[in-house]
Design a protein around this nucleic acid. Structure first.
Lengths: 340, 340
DNA sequence: CTGAAAGCGCTAACAG
DNA sequence: CTGTTAGCGCTTTCAG
């Protein structure tokens, strides 16, 4: 068994209360320097580890944060997690990480179990545009911040990519290359990125004076390659009216679109240019290398964690607004001049 | 604030002890069915969540497991984590996940903080061939299992790919294609996969009657593309004596090797065939698509988790031996007949 | 079947 | 500066 505070106190010939003060940085100054020294030595000797159950029970602090992600297997999320861990880990917090698979029921259930573990705060990369968990958190006034997704009702602070700017930059870039028939394969609309990009697409098309009927949108039923392939089938079937450029909702959808193109015998980028979003790993190595926007994943994690830490520790209560981080356009080989 | 067991008991008109029994599946049978019913209803109404600090303090069980991985950003690990979560999550455990970056000091430090959080068990994907953390765990007799890596001293059960079979299969396959000059770019030797594959390479070369001096080994200084590129520089510099096939220590190293080949103007697979290990995502989409071995990542996680759970719950104390899972060879475009 | 009481290990308020 | 005390919320004997 491991040793307890009482063991340390006994060995040091002091009262447990005193030992506690000696060992705790915030109350060390209340104890004589020699005593502190002795207690610490003995603690080290017995390699005493404070029982975090007991401490938590007393202080109502766990130094644990709950981290909800849709799926760690999606390469978007690990860098975010690392960014979070980098700041919160250094501050003494550990992360309880769960995968929700974009399942609202699972999300709520997992949240409840994390809640009963008394997490000091939460970071959610899982929010739906309307999200009961977000409401539950907000109602209970628990520190929490959203990352990569935001909710319709701005109940919690969020850190996300600047999706509106991305879409505008993408379309401007394509127009400069001579494209006028630009289509959008949108990701599902119940999550903010899909919805925001879709809306930004519509308004940008209008703002730039393109013909809306030449710029169709089709909403994919998922986030992966297969969904992209399925969604673009109809889009590229009529060789006369087909777009010359396709903006996919994310990189995986873009790959699916390119799969469809290659099975249909359409060349990318000669016939149709394709753009993705997020710049997940190895998009520079697929064929053709994908033009996409670099979401600052690590930085998003860092920012979210900083906001959460300040909130937990009472340094600053954040506004429930969204911070939009810029996403540079990475031009590679999947885009080129519009065919003549 | 959330409600406590005492609140529930009061509202139900019973003693807290009784409420506790009524709510706990294992002791429910000690309480009258009607009472159980009433207490449960009231608990649900107040949405009572047991305080896990208090419970843990009393029971010395946290229903938490510590999960140490080198780097979540390496696509090898998320599927393992998901496999683990799948079994342990269903059993009521949550996972505290930390990244060690293959830094022994960081590993020990993080382990100690997880220990003070009273994890019921550990799964390590981080073990070095000699690993102080593994020794510390073993000495304290804490349930823990290794995954993807094993230690020299078989102190803990482990689940890994069958690296010896992989290497043998790889070389046999290459020999069948006519290769006799086969080189190995090994991954660092302080981790079991690098070491085991290296040894298997040596013995297989001998067993198959190839000339050892025609089958050089160079040990890479890291696990990534850059390390693979650097390690293969020398190997392919002499056009007369260069190998016709290279077995890289993992997929990232293999990509590095292919980078080197393409900058040197050597064609893959026409001039040199390349094989990787693990089959990380999108190896089927790079150019040329990589021939590699499919490590059963998810299954490894599942197996490790099952062993751990049985150990924690006392169902079965496992042998400290390694389970080797078969890894099928996935033949793609980076391998072909030896040049004549 | 239910109630009473003790105590897990710690911290924080207060007294000396 | 150090000791005393109480109690966080729960489970688990032991009595009734």
């Amino acid at each position: 068994m491991v040793s307890t505070l009482a063991d340390v106190a006994r060995a040091a010939g002091v009262h447990p209360g005193t030992a506690s003060k000696a060992l705790n940085p915030d109350s060390r100054h209340l104890v004589a320097a020699v005593t502190v020294q002795r207690v610490r030595e003995i603690a080290a000797e017995l390699d005493y580890q404070p029982n975090s159950f007991a401490r938590g029970l007393r202080t109502s602090r766990s130094f644990t944060i709950g981290l909800l992600v849709p799926d760690l297997t999606n390469p978007l999320f690990p860098p975010i997690v690392r960014g979070i861990e980098e700041v919160l880990g250094a501050a003494g917090y550990s992360a309880l990480i769960v995968n929700t698979d974009n399942d609202a029921k699972k999300e709520m259930q997992l949240f409840m179990t994390l809640l009963s573990r008394r997490c000091d705060g939460f970071i959610l990369a899982t929010a739906f545009r309307q999200d009961p968990v977000v409401e539950a958190i907000s109602k209970r006034n628990i520190p929490a911040v959203l990352v990569n997704r935001s909710t319709e009702s701005h109940l919690l602070p969020a850190v996300a990519g600047d999706e509106v700017a991305e879409v505008r930059d993408a379309i401007k870039y394509l127009v400069k290359l001579g494209h006028r028939r630009i289509a959008h394969v949108a990701s599902p609309q119940n999550l903010s990125p899909g919805y925001i990009r879709h809306r930004a697409f519509l308004t940008t098309i209008r703002d730039l004076g393109l013909e809306p009927e030449e710029c169709p949108v089709v909403v994919a039923t998922g986030f992966n390659e297969a969904a992209g392939e399925a969604a673009s089938k109809e889009l590229v079937s009529h060789s006369t009216s087909r777009p010359t450029a396709i903006l996919a909702g994310n990189d995986q959808l873009a790959i699916g679109v390119m799969d469809r193109l290659s099975t249909t015998g359409i060349k990318c980028p000669e016939d149709i240019s394709v753009i993705g979003f997020n710049d997940i790993p190895r998009m520079d190595r697929i064929n053709p290398a994908l033009t996409t926007f670099a979401l600052p994943k690590h930085e998003m994690g860092v920012k979210a964690a900083q906001i959460l830490q300040a909130w937990i520790e009472g340094t600053s209560i954040p506004e429930p607004s969204t911070i939009y981080l810029p996403c540079p356009l990475i031009i590679r080989d999947s885009t080129g001049p519009a065919p003549s």
